[in-house]
């Protein structure tokens, strides 16, 4: 589409093999995301949101269509893409900093570079004091912040998040949303985030994509022209309510 798009999904369809003819999770999903945009994907559960994210990140290959990342076809995981999963997904035998170092370690960086960069990332997510903590000693919110630090440590251009706050309590969730927005602006990264909270999506995103019931296809593609930085009181404006209603009626 435009020159500035970093990620393009072109008629993406995904059918999982099963006993009777296969289970179609996605049907001809097409969209493209601008560089440095914050895009949220919402949809009923089972509509294929996770599947879409896995396709975009090259963890799965589509049965039809293709994904382009920075103008190249995606056929496997890319270095410039970071992933955050629904659970923090930390390695319980590694300390916080060792978890953040993992991506660099796999690339064979030396110890000095690795720990300096990882320490910076932990500072960014506000966990500098917890670098030697084991995952079991971290709260859910802290663990998810370590996961975000890990996803950002190798400076990806695109960050894919699959319901990253799904397992957090309401207050932590709200705080994490604003922290993620702050990080997004600091790190100049394109974000594509799946969430099941319509409010959260409208509050955070430049653009909300709504997936339909299975097989998921794009029901609504809504721009949210709220100013930045976002704040909680924006939720009380009439436009906000309208957008939320629009998204909700697209889902139902």
């Amino acid at each position: 589409m435009t020159d500035d798009s970093i990620l393009t999904a072109n008629e993406l369809s995904m059918t999982f093999p099963n006993g009777n003819g296969g289970l179609q999770a996605l049907d001809a999903v097409t969209f493209s995301a601008q560089r440095n945009a914050f895009v949220c994907v919402v949809g009923p559960s089972g509509s294929g949101k996770s599947t879409l994210l896995r396709l975009l990140g090259g963890l799965l290959n589509p049965t039809q269509g293709e994904v382009q990342f920075e103008g190249e076809r995606v056929i496997g995981p890319r270095r410039r893409i970071g992933f955050v999963f629904q659970t923090a997904n930390l390695m319980p035998w590694r300390t916080a900093i060792e978890n953040v170092e993992l991506p660099l370690e796999l690339e064979g960086l030396n110890a000095g570079q690795k720990s300096r960069r990882a320490e910076d990332m932990l500072k960014l997510v506000g966990l500098a004091d917890f670098k030697q903590s084991l995952p079991r000693d971290l709260s859910g919110g802290m663990a998810q912040r370590v996961a975000i630090a890990r996803a950002l440590v190798h400076e990806p251009d695109l960050l894919l998040l699959d319901e990253p706050f799904g397992s957090l309590d309401a207050l932590t969730r709200e705080r994490m949303a604003f922290e993620l927005l702050k990080i997004w602006q600091l790190e100049r990264v394109t974000v594509l985030m799946v969430t099941h909270s319509i409010q959260e999506a409208v509050l955070m995103a430049d653009r909300v994509l709504v997936l339909s019931q299975r097989p998921g296809s794009i029901r609504l593609d809504l721009d949210i022209p709220l100013s930045r930085p976002r704040s909680l009181d924006m939720m009380h404006t009439p436009e906000f309510g309208q957008w939320v209603d629009q998204v909700r009626s697209a889902i139902e």
Binding site: T87, N89, L102
Partner: peptide, 29 residues
């Protein structure tokens, strides 16, 4: 070994040997 950690290692483009030594062995230990 949790399948989500396999996904993580794959998303980081870990080699087979890296998956074995850095994920499977410690997880199964």
């Amino acid at each position: 070994v949790p399948s989500e950690l396999y996904d993580l290692m794959r998303s980081l483009r870990a080699a087979k040997a890296q998956i074995f030594w850095k994920l499977e062995v410690p997880a199964a230990m």
